[in-house]
Protein backbone atom coordinates (compact mmCIF):
# COMPACT_ATOMS: atom_id res chain seq x y z
CA UNK A 1 0.00 0.00 0.00
CA UNK A 2 1.31 3.39 -0.98
CA UNK A 3 0.19 6.80 0.16
CA UNK A 4 -1.35 9.11 -2.45
CA UNK A 5 -2.82 12.56 -2.60
CA UNK A 6 -5.64 12.93 -5.09
CA UNK A 7 -6.98 16.28 -6.28
CA UNK A 8 -10.38 16.34 -7.96
CA UNK A 9 -11.82 19.35 -9.76
CA UNK A 10 -15.59 19.36 -10.18
CA UNK A 11 -17.75 21.39 -12.52
CA UNK A 12 -19.77 23.61 -10.19
CA UNK A 13 -22.67 23.95 -12.65
CA UNK A 14 -23.32 20.19 -12.71
CA UNK A 15 -23.50 19.63 -8.95
CA UNK A 16 -26.05 21.08 -6.50
CA UNK A 17 -24.01 21.11 -3.23
CA UNK A 18 -20.43 22.11 -2.35
CA UNK A 19 -19.05 18.69 -3.27
CA UNK A 20 -19.77 16.76 -0.05
CA UNK A 21 -21.98 14.23 -1.85
CA UNK A 22 -19.32 13.52 -4.47
CA UNK A 23 -16.61 13.32 -1.80
CA UNK A 24 -18.57 10.67 0.13
CA UNK A 25 -19.13 8.71 -3.07
CA UNK A 26 -15.43 8.88 -3.92
CA UNK A 27 -14.49 7.77 -0.41
CA UNK A 28 -16.68 4.66 -0.73
CA UNK A 29 -15.13 3.88 -4.13
CA UNK A 30 -11.64 4.19 -2.66
CA UNK A 31 -12.37 2.10 0.41
CA UNK A 32 -14.80 -0.56 -0.84
CA UNK A 33 -14.11 -0.97 -4.58
CA UNK A 34 -10.36 -0.32 -4.62
CA UNK A 35 -9.50 -1.60 -1.15
CA UNK A 36 -7.76 1.49 0.12
CA UNK A 37 -8.22 3.59 3.23
CA UNK A 38 -8.73 7.32 3.68
CA UNK A 39 -6.19 9.28 5.72
CA UNK A 40 -7.58 12.78 5.26
CA UNK A 41 -10.17 14.41 3.04
CA UNK A 42 -11.15 18.02 2.66
CA UNK A 43 -13.07 20.33 0.38
CA UNK A 44 -10.77 23.12 -0.76
CA UNK A 45 -13.75 25.03 -2.05
CA UNK A 46 -14.58 27.00 -5.16
CA UNK A 47 -11.54 28.44 -6.91
CA UNK A 48 -10.85 30.37 -10.04
CA UNK A 49 -8.60 28.60 -12.56
CA UNK A 50 -5.32 30.16 -13.59
CA UNK A 51 -6.14 28.88 -17.07
CA UNK A 52 -9.37 27.55 -18.51
CA UNK A 53 -10.26 23.86 -18.29
CA UNK A 54 -12.81 22.74 -20.91
CA UNK A 55 -13.77 26.41 -21.43
CA UNK A 56 -14.69 26.76 -17.75
CA UNK A 57 -13.19 29.39 -15.47
CA UNK A 58 -14.06 28.13 -11.98
CA UNK A 59 -14.41 24.79 -10.24
CA UNK A 60 -14.71 23.03 -6.89
CA UNK A 61 -11.52 21.46 -5.57
CA UNK A 62 -11.43 18.32 -3.42
CA UNK A 63 -8.30 17.00 -1.74
CA UNK A 64 -8.09 13.40 -0.53
CA UNK A 65 -5.07 11.76 1.08
CA UNK A 66 -5.40 8.00 0.98
CA UNK A 67 -3.55 4.71 0.91
CA UNK A 68 -3.99 2.42 -2.05
CA UNK A 69 -2.23 -0.26 -4.06
CA UNK A 70 -0.09 1.04 -6.92
CA UNK A 71 -2.07 -1.02 -9.45
CA UNK A 72 -5.32 0.73 -8.45
CA UNK A 73 -4.34 4.21 -9.66
CA UNK A 74 -5.26 3.57 -13.28
CA UNK A 75 -8.68 2.01 -12.49
CA UNK A 76 -9.46 5.10 -10.37
CA UNK A 77 -8.60 7.43 -13.26
CA UNK A 78 -10.51 5.29 -15.75
CA UNK A 79 -13.61 5.33 -13.58
CA UNK A 80 -13.96 9.11 -13.78
CA UNK A 81 -12.66 9.91 -17.28
CA UNK A 82 -16.13 9.76 -18.83
CA UNK A 83 -17.80 11.52 -15.90
CA UNK A 84 -18.75 15.02 -17.05
CA UNK A 85 -18.83 16.54 -13.55
CA UNK A 86 -15.13 15.72 -13.04
CA UNK A 87 -12.90 18.19 -14.87
CA UNK A 88 -9.64 16.82 -13.46
CA UNK A 89 -8.62 13.88 -11.30
CA UNK A 90 -4.93 13.80 -10.51
CA UNK A 91 -3.20 11.43 -8.09
CA UNK A 92 0.26 12.22 -6.79
CA UNK A 93 2.42 10.06 -4.57
CA UNK A 94 2.48 11.55 -1.09
CA UNK A 95 6.13 12.56 -0.74
CA UNK A 96 6.04 15.25 1.93
CA UNK A 97 8.06 14.59 5.10
CA UNK A 98 6.05 13.78 8.23
Amino acid sequence: MKKYETIVILDEKLIDDDGTKFLKELETVLTKDLGGNIVKSEIMGRRQFAREINKKKTGIYLDITHEMGADKVKPLRDKYTLNETVLRLQSYSYDRPE
Binding site: A50, Y61, R88
Partner: peptide, 10 residues
Protein backbone atom coordinates in the same frame (compact mmCIF):
# COMPACT_ATOMS: atom_id res chain seq x y z
CA UNK B 1 4.52 21.72 -12.59
CA UNK B 2 2.02 19.87 -10.38
CA UNK B 3 0.09 23.06 -9.74
CA UNK B 4 -0.07 23.78 -13.48
CA UNK B 5 -1.89 20.50 -14.13
CA UNK B 6 -4.63 21.37 -11.66
CA UNK B 7 -4.82 24.98 -12.96
CA UNK B 8 -3.72 26.66 -9.73
CA UNK B 9 -0.92 28.59 -11.43
CA UNK B 10 -0.15 29.64 -15.01
Amino acid sequence: KRARVIALVM
